[in-house]
Design a protein around this nucleic acid. Sequence first.
RNA 1: GCGGGCGUGAUGGAAUGGUAGACAUACCAGACUUAAAAUCUGUUGGGCCUUGUGCCCGUGUGGGUUCGAGUCCCACCGCCCGCACCA
Length: 855
Amino acid sequence: MSRYVAAEIEPKWQAAWTEAEVFRARRTGDKPKYYVLEMFPYPSGRIHIGHVRNYTMGDVVARYKRATGHNVLHPMGFDAFGMPAENAAMANGGHPRDWTYANIDTMVEQMKPLGFSLDWTRMFATCDPEYYGQQQALFLDFLEKGLVYRKNAVVNWDPVDMTVLANEQVEDGRGWRSGALVERRELTQWFFKISDMSGELLDALDTLDNWPAKVKTMQANWIGRSRGLQFAFSLIDGPHGHDRVEVYTTRPDTLMGASFVGISPDHPLARDLEKSDPDVAAFCAEARQGGTTEEAIEKADKLGYDTGLRVRHPFDTSLELPVYIANFILMDYGTGAIFGCPGHDQRDHDFCRKYDLPIIDTFVPLDGEIDIQAAPYVPPKSEKVRYTRLIAGEEVQTGQEAVNAAVDFCESNGVGQGVTKFRLRDWGLSRQRYWGCPIPVVHCDDCGVVPEKKENLPIQLPYDEGGKPIDFSIPGNPLDRHPTWRDAPCPACGKPARRETDTMDTFVDSSWYFARFTAPRADTPTVAEDAAYWMNVDQYIGGIEHAILHLLYSRFFARAMNVCGHLPDKTREPFEALFTQGMVTHAIYQTKGADGRPVYHYPEDIDLRDGRGYLKDGAEVEIIPSAKMSKSKNNVVDPVAIISQYGADTARWFVLSDSPPERDVEWTAAGAEAAAKHLARVHRLAVEIGDAPADEAEDIALLREMHKAIKDVTLGVDSFGFNASIAKLYGFTNTIAKSRAGAQAKRTALKSLAQLMAPMTPHLAEEIWATLGGEGLIAEAPWPVADDAMLVEDTITMPIQVNGKRRGEITVPKDMDKAEVEKLALAHENVARTLEGAQPKKVIVVPGRIVNVVM
RNA sequence: GCGGGCGUGAUGGAAUGGUAGACAUACCAGACUUAAAAUCUGUUGGGCCUUGUGCCCGUGUGGGUUCGAGUCCCACCGCCCGCACCA
């Protein structure tokens, strides 16, 4: 009698699938297509259990859709450019390219044993010249359509290492290597004009019915459309060339509460003052210190510098407001200048308290008192308030009404105009790094910035410098210092010129890979027929951490590619449905070291007894459950070890069970063990099916359960309720195990069970299918369909509540009418006792659900 | 700081506004065994007594809406994710 040995059956069936080319995506026949995609991985060197969960979910969808008669496209690739490769080269020598491709080989080798139904013939890495060459072609097309341009932008500058730092390389405002205080510095950089599409990207969110609402909300907030007023304060005795300060506000209704005008340290006025006044220069230099992230700027102490300049209030010319340079005002947003209204804004309130500026209210609550000096009054814009210093509109109105009235009033009085602004900034794509896609332009002394000719693409990264592999231990960008790579003839005039040495943000690489998968070897970015057939991605699956940037950039790219003719109109929104999955977590086992710092222990060194953990020497460890996996905390689970211990099917089964897919799941050794035991049990049931004779009642009962299981499991798979499907599969397995049905009925039930398990545990399913004489491969078998006639129940059990508390239940025919149900409910012994003879005030009968008696 | 989310037994979690705790883990008890492992069966939210088709309490905390709230609304607490050069 054969036992369940995953190590034997898994390679066998993987070979069978490869042999039959079951997972090759073909656009043939008249089947509908289905494109399922998981966010492709960064080739860090090893797959982790989070990848296993992500790809298993996609695989369940892919296999299910294949079984329900679709041509499925389910590809895999690598997001292969980026800093870790350069960091590795700096730390350990070697070359980013060698490091990356070696990692890809390792990861493919680790992924294949998991048995994912991927079309490996379509695999590519974004660092393949065949891929990034097409990306350069896209860049040139975007340039032609005016979707790319150059302007100055602020970067993190390390004054000691003389290099640009990524945000993650800035720790507490200091460079990670040098420890020097980071400065904000301006460079000329390339930008995608994503802001041109702000309105469309925002409005189209409403059409994304199968995206999580939270992702849509996050994107809407990120794009941030606001209606406001742009107007100018006239400057009293301003320096040469400055007679006004242009500001933008979303709350023009609070203009009468203005206490000061604030400008960014990068505002033209501040820049001019800086030239002649060392104090201003010192303040601006200080304000520019620290990282460029919004978080760093928001969290920094709010500092202001009184320029001594004054502006006149547009509606009360006797009123003069001071002009401050303030470190929390961003030049990128609005006009880089604001007016501060401390009565109705927390930050302005803090600022005015600090610099002893007046705090005036412009509106008060309809009832109740408020101490505006102690705290600002900031009600929702939709709330009605009483205006004490009114610009326009009714005395009592909502903030929104007052804003609209104020804009109209200001416009008709020639004070500024109403404008719609977006928070979304253009996408800076320039990176001063080696390991990325070169930007295909040439700088010519005569012709300026000239796009490279398409026939010269790809502009490849050089592997060597001066005959030797590039040395990454030397600081600076290797492309910048390369002896020959920079030299290129100007594509316009042919004279010697210099290549652009900046490379592209890796977000560019991941913004169109989904389109490339439809024709991965083409010598154009896409092929019209393939894109038309396979796009859009029907189901996209990935982490919530990509909710904003990656998905927004991809939506922009799809539109831009459509503008350039690389994608059809229907692909302007490339992802039909999005699912964001949770992490796989694992307990941390820690003790305190002699120095009081935590010491982290590997799970395999821990004995678990009664929910407590002990080391081999008997010392108890502290267990921190459900922690994010981290190498430094020693709580990482290696999929390779899990597969060799239990097999791929166990790993797949476990990561889908227990938790709903969108939530985190905790990996536990006990849970993995239980999953393995269960799969062995299912295998045993199939092998030991016996030869019991038919038994009509038992057989029908089992088949009824089978149809119920088909219905419930299908519903779960359809709605991403994989954990619910698995719970049903446990239940159905228990039913089969306990059933006294005949062997024939059990065979039927077990074959259905195998089919229902096939998306999750495909190897075991094939094995059982073959054992029970199923035809062909289960991977190619059609999905079972529940017979409605077998699902009909004649009677239902309804709970009876008295005042919302359950007091009993009755079993009644399915279609019994309400009055009859009510009579039976009131006659129920325990219900009658609870009523104590009192007449119920009301009886609510929800057919098929519940009865509630109200006393 | 700003934006988004989550919070249910010892544990992971289930529950279209309608019987809270499905399914699983762990624990306990039993069967099989010389024994153990494996396997199989059963019990388990807390409390009370009058042991019943019983009663009270119970879904982070405090309020509210409803015949009925884990689910909807408001406030608070805790944790997680994102914040534009990490991928």
